[in-house]
Design a protein around this nucleic acid. Structure first.
Length: 478
RNA sequence: GGCGGGUUGGCGGAGAGGUUACGCAGCGGAUUGCAAAUCCGUGAAGACCGGUUCGAUUCCGGUACCCGCCUCCA
């Protein structure tokens, strides 16, 4: 069995991965808050942990890996969007408008992440489906003396959990010293965080022992991971910016609610995405969405390739140049493999070298280097690229559709416009060879290149290949 | 202020205490009427200062600079 070593944020070291139960390897990854289109930064953990999911499925068997990624559909930004729609005259109750908004966003998210070649997780729970589990967990925390109720709020008492701060390497005292936020007066300790907060009539709420309200941000992941994966599971992933406070608080809640269990054994955090060397973030406003990129003509697999060309624990700068290189490599692979048939997934056995690269804390860059070396073995390249999430059925279909639509618009075989031009070119060239006057040949060649056609000439004949910027209209009159 | 991470050739980006990363770009060659595509070959690095070592870009310490978290965020 392939050895997998993963960097564990909790211990700050690379460790050999040993699942609690090899027949049910369990991974939880923090998913999106569904109030708007996913930006490119949101896509990084999706692609990274999708690659890990694929590796785990290959090593332990498809049926033996459970991957949970949540949708946060309780959030004040969602409420605000719904409220704005209502004020703009949208029909329906606030709850209906909120539901509409989250449904719509989840649909976008699925479409965008599918385009990146990411497999759907085993389960995608929504916070609103687990309010009962959250309330139960909060009640348990109060009973055990780890949480307290104050004026409709329930707060977690960080001083009741001595390990608080261990995951993110901070001490409560240091954090208080450097605190930049105003502290709510009802908190026993400035670092105490909200488990439950009251909702007024203009906000969505659920009945609870503490009145009508809604959960704090962190409790949902604790409740859903417990319900779907148990008190102890193998891997918890997410962006490094979630390490504190989100994951720290998750650890505190879960470990206090289920003493004796491990919660997540391995914590994995992907680094941030940069744009122009600055972190892409909502507050800086320098983010763009996956959809925008797709619409600009960057195929999803190109985005995936760029993502995987940088190790997940390093910041990654998104640049047009990287996208260009990725596209070049993928086009080349597609061209080499478009006529081959992929091996059925169940028969595929990945090469040990590729598995070693991925098993070494997801060295995806090395894995891509391995794929590149497979140029001379197209069948092997096709199967291994597909294992990595490239050259998918969709991408191959799209490629073939593009080829077909080209034939469609010009007619097939010798009557095709380009074939005709190729013949013309060939004849002109043959004449030029004799007359030594190449001007007419060069003129036609220039016109073809201007139309986005690549001109390949050899002794055997002339081959015309339409490129990315191919414009059939420019062929008129040639 | 507290905590964490980074600094590799023109660009991107890995591994390894000593032996070619790789890709892109460049250069040279084959090929071509000239090109394109393809193939072959090739130069170029390890922020700075110390230490450990027979030997460090790789380990340790310091300096500088950059970045992130501590506030919604993947």
């Amino acid at each position: 069995m392939t050895a997998i070593r993963l960097y564990n944020t909790r211990t700050r070291s690379k460790e050999e991965f040993t699942p609690f139960d090899p027949r049910n390897v369990r991974m939880y990854v923090c998913g999106p808050t569904v109030y708007d289109r996913a930006h490119l930064g949101n896509a990084r953990p999706v692609v990274v942990f999708d690659t890990l999911f694929r590796l785990l499925r290959h090593v332990y068997g498809e049926e033996h890996v459970t991957y949970v990624r949540n949708f946060t559909d309780v959030d004040d930004k969602i409420n605000a969007t719904a409220l704005a729609r209502q004020e703009a005259g949208a029909v329906g109750t606030l709850e209906e408008l909120i539901h509409q908004r989250t449904e719509e966003t989840i649909g976008w998210y699925h479409a965008d992440m599918d385009a990146l070649g990411a497999l759907r997780p085993t389960a995608e729970p929504r916070a609103t489906q687990y309010i009962g589990a959250m309330v139960a967990m909060i009640e348990g925390l109060i009973e055990r003396g780890h949480a307290y109720e104050v004026s409709g709020h329930v707060l977690f008492d960080v001083r009741s959990y001595p390990e608080y701060g261990r995951l993110s390497g901070r001490s409560v005292d240091d954090m208080i010293a450097g605190a930049r936020v105003e502290v709510a007066p009802y908190k026993r300790d400035p670092m105490d965080f909200v488990l439950w907060k009251p909702s007024d009539a203009s906000l969505p709420g659920w009945d609870s022992p503490w009145g009508r309200g809604r959960p704090g941000w962190h409790i949902e992941c604790s409740a859903m991971s417990y319900e779907l994966l148990g008190a102890s599971f193998d891997i918890h992933g997410g962006g490094i910016d979630l390490q504190f406070p989100h994951h720290e608080n998750e650890v505190a809640q879960s470990c206090c609610a289920h003493p004796g269990a491990d919660f997540a054994r391995v914590w994995m955090h992907n680094e941030m995405l940069l744009v122009e060397s600055k972190k892409m973030s909502k507050s800086l406003g320098n983010f763009f969405t996956v959809r925008e990129l797709l619409e600009q003509g960057y195929p999803g697999e190109v985005i995936r390739f760029v993502m995987l060309s940088t190790h997940y624990r390093k910041p990654m700068d998104w640049t047009a140049e990287k996208a260009r290189e990725a596209k070049q490599a993928l086009d080349d692979w597609m061209h080499l493999t478009c006529d081959l048939h992929p091996a059925p997934a169940e028969d595929f056995q990945a090469d040990e070298k590729l598995l070693e690269a991925l098993g070494d804390d997801l060295n995806t860059h090395l894995a891509l280097t391995y794929l590149r070396a497979l140029r001379s073995q197209p069948q092997k390249l096709l199967d291994h690229a597909r294992f990595m999430g490239f050259l998918s059925d969709d991408a191959r279909a799209e490629y073939n559709r593009a080829q077909a639509s080209f034939v469609m618009s010009f007619g097939a075989g010798s009557t095709s416009r380009l074939a005709h031009l190729a013949q013309k070119m060939h004849a002109l060239r043959a004449a030029a060879m004799a007359s030594k006057d190449f001007a007419p040949v060069d003129a036609l060649k220039s016109a073809l290149i201007a139309a986005g056609v690549e001109v390949r000439m050899s002794k055997e004949g002339v081959e015309l290949v339409p490129g990315a910027g191919f414009d059939p209209a420019k062929l008129e009159g040639l």
